[in-house]
Design a protein around this nucleic acid. Structure first.
Lengths: 270, 270
DNA sequence: ACACGGTGTTCCACATATTGGAACAACTGC
DNA sequence: GCAGTTGTTCCAATATGTGGAACACCGTGT
């Protein structure tokens, strides 16, 4: 068990030998919102010039980066293709999907599926509200756990020690005036969420947006996730959310069960 | 110019030193439709046991793979997160987006944006048909160029020599009875597409599904892409598609122009 | 109990890919 | 032309990865 804990180095770690350096370069380019030139990357990733240069060459060879005419680097398409493969082959997502659709049919609002990864929630699937314009596949998007319904729901299902370890690592950013500002207030709400079995997001991450979420736990897969119904507060009242809460919990429980059956304890098969 | 051509090794190449091996392992796991055990991977990727074992360790350390309780490996969430970063920061997609929405408003059908990468089209954005049920973000999905509207449109904008080079690499799989079965028949149609300025998919990739597409070319970025309007043939007739063709060409031209303006020849900025 | 075929894991002498400082080139503005 | 960028190349030192072989483990069948 000398495997480094990924999340410990989450934000720019030295990395695992050659591969680690390559990944941190890749991340630097992918995270940037504009094509990066050699010098830009040099400043982000602290590596000797020669080293970085060769590394970039390799990344281009692999199709992970593309070098444009003006010598700047952009993420290549291989990354997208690779992510699609892993996404579409994800069994958990596959099992959960019909339940998301169900919930969407029932509520008419947007339904999210997200997985907890240390302090953040990563969205892995989404069914849009009927009224939505933008397709905005925010699949792969990461949001803080402390201010999202799925995040808080997922956190509530952790053992207290684990919860505290993770809470200690959070940086509380006040997105709105209802966002939790400290671990103390978050932990207090978690207590309540544990009793109720579901969590609300009362415009804590984004103004005018609220949701109700329930945790999904599959110990056999060390998986802590959540499912939620989200809507604009002018249309979706807290009363309405409270009514939907039971349905959300229900879907979550069904997903848990089906995951256990289909990816059962024995062989993992689909 | 001793940079290897990515596509030449597209299907399982030895790869660029260490990084190449790591990527081929990652791809093996991501492509598989079920969790892969050590031995499974060993057979896919031809590497010595010791080497592979260490490599898997590194990939897990980096969060690119996750090892489950039964020792099998799955793609990790970092890949998805990374892909989202690169996708949402993609300037070409960003510029094209409103035009996709326009086209969707106009037609009511599904609109796709795809980029040509050697013999295949990789979808980078999508606006769904109003009637669609499934969210199915097929972003990142790769389809053969020879049997898709976007693919053929994109191919038609290549120089003849380049077109022939790529056509020679294709493997013609007869998805339906209307699918091109040889480079000869494909190239013949390409001639026609060049004259018209748009391409049709007449149920060539999937039965009951057809589309009309136009090429998008941005030489400054070495980018060959396409945009399309797709629908089920019972609802979207060829006559209808022919009418929409002008709109699709129009959108394509607007995107080309806007890309040139916004990502202009000088500095690449957003 | 024992041998067996199959897993995944560890070890270590060897080879090589990576390292990173420094020199080089190309372009830019003064 | 000179100073200040930028990106690129070179190469001896060495850290890193290599891969064959031995190891430990776990069920199975005899």
């Amino acid at each position: 068990m000398d495997r480094k804990n990924v999340a410990d180095l989450e934000n720019e770690g030295p990395g695992t030998g050659t591969l680690g350096k390559a990944m941190s370069v890749l991340e630097a380019v992918a995270t940037a919102d504009r094509p990066q030139r050699f010098t830009d990357i040099l400043q982000t990733v602290r590596q000797p010039r020669g080293t970085l240069h060769r590394l970039l060459g390799h990344l281009v060879d692999e199709g992970l980066l593309v070098q444009r005419g003006d010598l700047s680097y952009e993420p290549g398409l291989r990354l997208l293709k690779l992510a699609y493969s892993s996404w579409s082959g994800n069994q958990f997502r596959d099992v959960a999907e019909p339940h998301l659709l169900n919930l969407h049919e029932l509520t008419g609002e947007t339904v999210h599926l997200g997985i907890l990864r240390e302090t953040e929630i990563i969205y892995v699937d989404k069914v849009e509200s009927r009224q939505t314009v933008r397709m905005s596949s925010q699949i792969g998007k990461a949001s803080p756990a402390y201010c999202t319904g799925i995040g808080k729901a997922a956190l509530s299902s952790l053992a207290q020690s684990e919860l505290q370890r993770i809470a200690a690592k959070m940086h509380f950013i006040p997105f709105t005036d209802r966002t939790h500002r400290s671990a103390t207030s978050l932990l207090a709400e978690i207590e309540e969420i544990r009793r109720e079995g579901h969590a609300f997001d009362r415009e804590e991450h984004e103004a005018e947006i609220c949701c109700v979420a329930a945790p999904i736990v599959v110990p056999e897969h060390e998986l802590v996730a959540g499912i939620s119904v989200t809507g604009p507060s002018y249309r979706v009242t807290m009363t309405q959310l409270a009514i939907w809460a039971a349905d959300v919990r229900n879907s979550a429980r069904q997903i848990e069960e089906e995951v256990r059956i289909r990816l059962g304890p024995g062989r993992g098969g689909g």
